[in-house]
Write a protein that binds this DNA or RNA. Structure first.
Lengths: 118, 118
DNA sequence: TTTATATGAAACCTTATGGTATCATGTCAA
DNA sequence: TTGACATGATACCATAAGGTTTCATATAAA
């Protein structure tokens, strides 16, 4: 079944799903691994992962009987695109973000191999 | 009653509310004015405006019997803050955004009164 | 003051959402 | 092959969400 495309905004609406993304940002994880971080059943976590996948915010690949969930940075593009519509109203916010980006890049220059592992 | 603080992410989850924000970006509007742009009752639009207000994405001020709804750019800060957590994983996306910011700023310098219409 | 207008609020309906429990299926390991 | 394990899928439940209608209230205009 092809993943039902849906707005990533809906996927971000739930705090549990936002938490899941933060966990997945540190490393790719199986469903069970994700579920370990939450006080709910694996089935519930799996549902959240389905919504995140439908929203394009994660990708899922099989590894034997396991499903490896990984953050999909490209899936966030629609969010940035939508936010950019407001650019002209938010110059100060964007300036701050721009500074943050530059700070991040400077940090990376210091530690070029700061990577997450799978 | 103080507006119930809530996640702006939830406020952005609904496409109608995202549309409302685009309209409010062009000009402040009364509830009735906002409702004119949608094929639903004023009461339904008012509910959406309440959610947007709870999420901090708009402000509401009274003008006589009217309520003027205005976009609240500061309300988007939590969204940028949250997204910035992922900076280290998204450098290319952020680079693109940075370019977009710079392009926007250059454009503003050229046409300081550039306004979009829907 | 009377009437029209703009909003507020409540009751109600339908569907979506977030959760559970249970069972089926596919894959790994003895 | 057999048993354990990771996931898939379904049924079910309670509540939230998005919408309507209706009525109340506050302000504007005659």
């Amino acid at each position: 079944m092809p993943p039902t495309p849906q707005s990533p905004f809906r996927a971000l609406a739930d705090p549990t799903r936002r938490d899941i993304l933060k966990h997945l940002a540190t490393q790719d994880m199986t469903i069970a691994q994700v579920a370990q971080n939450f006080d709910m059943t694996r089935a519930a976590v799996k549902k959240h992962l389905t919504v995140l996948n439908d929203g394009g915010l994660i990708t899922v690949r099989a590894r034997g009987r396991e499903k490896i969930n990984a953050i999909n940075k490209d899936g966030f593009a629609p969010i940035f695109d939508w936010l950019s519509y407001f650019d002209q109203f938010w110059d100060d916010k964007l300036d701050a973000l721009k500074s943050a980006i530059e700070a991040t890049e400077a940090k990376k220059k210091d530690r070029p191999n700061d990577q997450h592992d799978d």
